[in-house]
Design a protein around this nucleic acid. Structure first.
Lengths: 146, 146
DNA sequence: TGAATATTTCATGATGTCAAGCAAATCGGT
DNA sequence: ACCGATTTGCTTGACATCATGAAATATTCA
């Protein structure tokens, strides 16, 4: 069994650190091209799929709801998102991407090279192996993707 | 060849997103146990290996040097880091971890379960495969680890 | 009615950028 | 070798974003 100090494990951990760094670089770069911050791009991506109450956005982002207020404020100011009342519960405000917001989110997804470029060098079989290893690494506790 | 929309590639990208999220959770949690922010923990980790000029810390963090000033200020206030003059160049200030800082950095590394826990389920052979796939994913452009 | 929920506001702090400033090193022309 | 101009390293200040926590408000639920 591997201890945490064996060279192979250490190298894998280093590589994962490099993947994390690379992921953020790409994400922030793509966001910046649309004058968005990473957090704004992430929320816009969520809302481009479906409107969400503020509270649920906070859960997805793992942050306080009061924080989400500001992020949505800034997206709303730029016309990418709008607040709608929830007909079922008047306490709730649904944040929804506008048409412009959905377009921006699509462009952002397309610009995110992290998906294609680094994986392009791997064959289908290798990608399948990678998928299985990552799945097992993340274990059962990892339901929802980002 | 895989397009960016084939289901396998998409799942791998999702899994990588999950790994990134998990990595940060673990890192920030470990840092918070020592009342450190993620950025502070990262800098302290760097400085526990060797003293660095402010400028080089900024390069490692990919941020402006003026930002590093504040981070080092806060670490210095808590006695984890000290500024020393560089004998070779009097413009330069070397940030160095104090004895307390090195101890904190060591405890932090030990508390970082991301290294052991998720990888513990993989055999040596599987870890080797994972290493090779990650290496190829990152390509040649990925010299320095985090 | 009273407790719980959803959102916002306010205060505060960490992190990030950029522009401006100072001190020290380096360069180029004489 | 000298001296002025530029460059380099760091800090400061102003400002925006992101994050937390406490308090206020409105609405729902028991």
């Amino acid at each position: 069994m591997a201890t945490r100090t064996d060279p192979l494990t250490l190298e894998v951990v280093e590589l994962i650190g490099a993947v994390v760094a690379r992921y953020h670089e790409e994400y922030d770069r793509a966001a910046a091209e649309h004058s968005l911050t990473g957090a704004q791009a992430r929320v816009l991506g969520l809302l481009s799929l479906e409107p969400l109450p503020m509270r649920k956005i906070a859960v997805r982002l793992k942050c306080e709801p009061s924080n989400v207020t500001g992020i949505i404020d800034r997206l709303e100011t730029r016309g990418l998102v709008e607040r709608r009342p929830d007909p079922a519960d008047r306490r709730v405000k649904l944040a929804a991407a506008t048409e412009t917001g959905r377009r921006t989110a699509r462009e952002l997804r397309d610009a995110l090279d992290f998906a294609r470029e680094p994986l392009a060098g791997l064959s289908d079989a290798e990608r399948a192996v990678l998928r299985d290893l990552l799945r097992r690494m993340l274990g059962e506790g990892a339901e929802g993707p980002v």
